[in-house]
Design a binder for these strands. Structure first.
Length: 435
DNA sequence: TCTGGGGTCCTAGGACCC
DNA sequence: TCTGGGGTCCTAGGACCC
């Protein structure tokens, strides 16, 4: 963490170093639009897994009154009335489009932190705000021209302020600099405290009770009072609102400390053998993620849950964790432990909606601790097998080679009834143009 | 009928140690 | 009535993010 002396907003202008947040507009909806130009200016939404909730909306869909996170069945009427185009999520496509956008940004700037699939923070040394503004406007057009994805860019001196600037940029669909102390107070007053990055619903409620309603009021809140309402993070947020950098730009992502694969089934599952297929498949996926970052895990947790929205049955969650004697990244080893755990938590009766796998106790595979009981030769063999498996699946597509235990029927697979083709990652689904 | 998934960090409290 | 003090490590749960 950088220095945390308290600076006032006057000091901002002379800090010399800026942080920009580059954020793709309505990202998933925009991706769908790139490949279906007829959707231009039309309302578009993208759904979560299992076609459950709306997780991305084009501007027109927002205008039509569809809310973020709303279950599909609750906005069926609007969708019909406004002829909203609905897509299942197509993560392969979005990840690929994201990579394209991010690589343009990385070519342009040195210090880039890819913060999420649709956002990046960059740290910039600029001569003047005016020059920077120009530069970012041209970057924005380049991204739009090269990928078809519109972005908005917020600039300020800390991440938290860049986020606020990004909100403004979204409204006028371009670049917004929040670097001048004159605009500062007004800009902060316009933002509800709950919209500040780092203030969620719980904290917002607490702040309301204390008469803190907007970002400006938060920025002048006494640190001790703030600390009594939240954790040390909220004090950092206040400092950041005052232009004091507490959060740095991390251009090299850390390895994950925990790996999760949890997914709802397409329909309720009642039998152990179908659950075993699903759990094996989820573990395979989690183990792949583990190997991608070169880690092994020493703890595996398996959980089953019923439908939490069901009126008829009460919600149940069964969970069990097992520690391994020495850590592993082998799919087969993890699957066999996972299946054993599943058998021990499975109860006949309820319909299961979801299975969850958590891998934790992660350490680098290269420097892992062996146990006296380890059969080193068979571990080496397994490692080679995993290498071949991963390589084939990278070259020829996921699940080209998979464990039989993950099932052939895959009755539990999630619903994705309105998925667009994987235009950019699958030869057989490439875009075709008819003349 | 239908309600996402994958992460992080922080804190309090218990277990344990000398 | 009286019940050491100081420390570490681990875990569960809460809050937040996209």
């Amino acid at each position: 963490m950088g220095s945390c002396d308290l600076r006032n907003t006057q000091g901002l202008i002379n800090m010399g170093k800026y942080i920009a947040l580059i954020d793709c507009n309505n990202f998933y909806a925009s991706c769908e639009r790139v490949f279906s130009p007829s959707l231009k200016n039309k309302p578009v939404v993208v759904l979560s897994n299992n076609d459950g909730c709306v997780i991305a909306r084009s501007a027109e869909a927002k205008m039509a009154g569809i809310k973020m996170g709303e279950p599909l069945f609750k906005c069926k009427d609007i969708i019909k009335k406004e002829s909203v185009k609905v897509f299942s999520s197509n993560y392969t496509l979005y990840a690929d489009m994201s990579n394209r956008v991010m690589s343009i940004i990385k070519n342009h700037f040195q210090d880039v932190e890819v913060y999420s699939i649709d956002e990046a923070f960059v740290s910039i040394e600029a001569v003047s705000v005016e020059n920077l503004h120009e530069e970012l406007i041209s970057l924005r057009s380049k991204i739009l021209k090269w990928t078809g994805i519109p972005v908005s860019i917020g600039v300020s001196t800390t991440k938290t302020l860049a986020k606020l600037a990004g909100r403004k940029a979204k409204k006028n669909l371009g670049v917004h600099c929040l670097c001048d102390s004159k605009d500062f107070t007004n800009a902060l007053r316009e933002v509800k405290v709950g919209s500040v990055w780092g203030v969620g619903r719980r904290l917002e409620k607490k702040f309301f009770l204390k008469g803190v309603y907007d970002a400006y009021q938060l920025s002048v809140l006494d640190h001790k009072r703030a600390r009594s309402l939240g954790s040390v993070n909220i004090v950092r947020t206040i400092l950041e609102l005052n232009g004091v950098r507490c959060l740095s730009i991390d251009s090299i992502p850390d390895n994950k400390r925990q790996i999760t694969t949890s997914r709802a089934f397409g329909s309720l599952v009642y039998t152990l053998d179908v659950l075993q297929e699903a759990v094996s498949a989820y573990i395979s996926r989690a183990a792949e993620k583990l190997r991608i970052q070169g880690s092994s895990c020493s703890t595996i947790t398996v959980a089953l849950s019923t439908n939490r929205f069901s009126q008829k049955e009460s919600y149940s969650f069964f969970v069990k964790t097992e520690s391994l004697i020495s850590s592993t990244d082998s799919t087969s080893k993890l699957v066999s432990v996972g299946k054993r755990i599943l058998e021990s938590i499975f109860k006949k009766g309820p319909g299961y909606k979801k299975a969850h796998i958590f891998l934790s106790g992660l350490e680098s595979s290269a420097s892992k601790q062996y146990s006296l009981e380890d059969d080193v030769a068979s571990i080496a063999k397994d490692t080679n097998l995993m290498r071949v498996l991963d390589r084939l699946n990278v070259s020829y597509g996921r699940d080209t080679l998979k464990y039989a235990s993950t099932g052939m029927s895959r009755d539990w697979l999630m619903k994705r009834e309105r998925k667009s083709p994987s235009y950019t990652t699958n030869w057989s689904e490439i875009l075709t143009i008819q003349l």
